[in-house]
Structure formats: C-alpha cells, structure tokens
Amino acid sequence: MVTYGAEYLKRLLAAVERFEQAFERWMETQVESDLRTSRGLYPTVHVKDGQDQVSVRERELDVAETAGAAARAVAVTGARIGVAGLGALDPIANWSLMSAPKALFSPQDVRNTAATVRGRLGMMIDEAETATETAVPGFAPSELHPVIWTAAAAHWTTHQYRVAVREASEALTVHWKTRLGRHDVDDTPFWQQTLSPGEPETGRPKLAWPGDPADKTTRSMRGGLEPLGKALNSLATGLNLTVRNVTTHTRDELTEQEGMERLAAYSYFARLLDKCEVRRVDEALQST
C-alpha cells in the first residue's frame, strides 16, 4: 500500500481549505437549493439578483483554480459520492455541474465532501507523523524527484501505474530537451548525443559528470571501469528501452510494486542528471 509523507498530505489539506474559502465566497453570490427542491431537473445554484457579473465571474474562476488542486486530495482519500448510472464521482472536481440542468450535486454535497477529505487527511497526517520506524521503510512517491512525481502523480493516484511511469519517463526527456534546446532530435538519440564522450558541438550541448575524468571517484571505485559519464549514457538507453518503450507501446498494466520500482529508477537517474554540468560551445569564440 502506498504511504504519503506528512508534508505532502499537509499541502493537500491546505489546498482543500483554500477551495472551501473560494467556494463559500462564490456561494455568497448564489441562490442555493438542493436536489429535492430542484426535482432533479434544474440547477441547484443560480446567481442572485443584482450581482455584479464581473465579480461573480472572478469568484467562479477562483473556485475553478482551487478545485484543481483540491481534487487531488479527493483521489488520495477516496472521498467520492456514488451517483446512480455514473458511478463514484468527485463533487469538488465537478462543482460547476451545480449550475447546469439536471444537476448531479448540491452545494451541501460539495461541503460534505470537503469536510470528509479534511477529516481523512487529518487522520493520515497524524499516522504519518507518529508512525514508528520499521525494518522496511514506507514508500512515499511524493518524495521522488519533482519532475518524475509531478508527471506521474495524477495517474498514480488513480492506480494507472503504467501510464504514470510512461508520463514520468517522457517528462524527464522533455525537461532536459527544453533546458538544452534540443527539440530537433528523437528521445534515444538525444540521450546518446547529450551523454556521449567528447566536446559539445554547436547546437548540441552535453551533460558531463563533474570532476577530473582521471580521478577514480569520477571513474568509479575501480579505475579500470568506464567513467561515470559514459555509464549515464548506458543508463539512459537502458531505461528508454526497458521502461519507456514498453509502457508506451504495450497496454499491459503494471502492478503497484512494478510501477514503484520503475519510477524510483527514473527518479535516481533524474537526480544524477541534476549533478551533471551543462557544457556548451562558446559561440562567441567560435565566431571569431
């Protein structure tokens, strides 16, 4: 079972609280009813007479923005509401449907869901902070490298582990292509060129492991092995072939354990890349 760090859970709790504040500010501009009053045919909210439309729209946008973050907390806590014919839905993510005909939720449904999420997050935070150390440490995916977890999070929390790994692998490549200005090449050649030995060329910067290549700490614990920089090239190619390509070109789902292992591999690779130096051709010198 996935465990989440206390700090991550606290950030989710803060997001829910921001949503609640924005929601209540918006509700000040609305006439509120419930599903029984609307008879299942009409909206459960509509704008009060005499409201400034610009102000209403601004508050509505605030709700939409904060709902995006708060909905992640619903996925983590599982606090959804069952709707006949549609299954379990998230009232926070679907708050705007209250203004539509045949509204699925009432304002009280949204409030109740937010309160339930806060309660569950509070319990999860207490458990995370008071948990004692065990022989096998818990896995906190939110502590993975930010590029990896940001890309994987939305899919991981809905148990789409294969898609989470695929998105994380692609996100790391896009991240470094953007940093190096290399959108002119496919993924595997990009890593091969970027991590290969030798000097950078015009339009082809390189990532190099810092330090003297002759130093054993740079080369490895054994001087006879290839330098770590070249090992990174092999690691990039290996991950691309065994993880990224498999999750992209097949539909075989991964287990949670398999997904964790693959994300952890990419997270470690991402942290190694962060330690590398970016080496570019000195354009000014080359033009003289």
Rank of each mutant, 00 (worst) to 15 (best):
E7Q: 13
R11Y: 05
V16F: 02
E20M: 10
R25W: 08
E28K: 10
Q30F: 02
R36D: 08
T37P: 00
T44V: 00
D52R: 07
Q53Y: 11
R57G: 14
L61T: 11
D62K: 11
T66A: 13
L97E: 14
Q108Y: 03
D109P: 00
R111W: 02
T116F: 00
M124F: 06
M124P: 06
E127M: 10
E129P: 08
P137C: 06
L144N: 05
P146G: 10
I148N: 01
T150I: 03
A153T: 04
Q160N: 15
V165A: 08
A168R: 02
A168C: 08
L172H: 03
T173F: 02
R179S: 11
R182N: 07
D186T: 11
D186K: 12
S196M: 03
G198W: 00
E201C: 06
P205Y: 03
D212S: 09
M221Q: 12
P227T: 13
P227Q: 09
G238D: 05
N240L: 09
V243N: 09
D252H: 13
M260D: 08
M260A: 15
E261Y: 10
A265T: 07
L272P: 04
L272E: 07
V278I: 15
V278D: 11
R279V: 15
R280Y: 08
S287D: 09
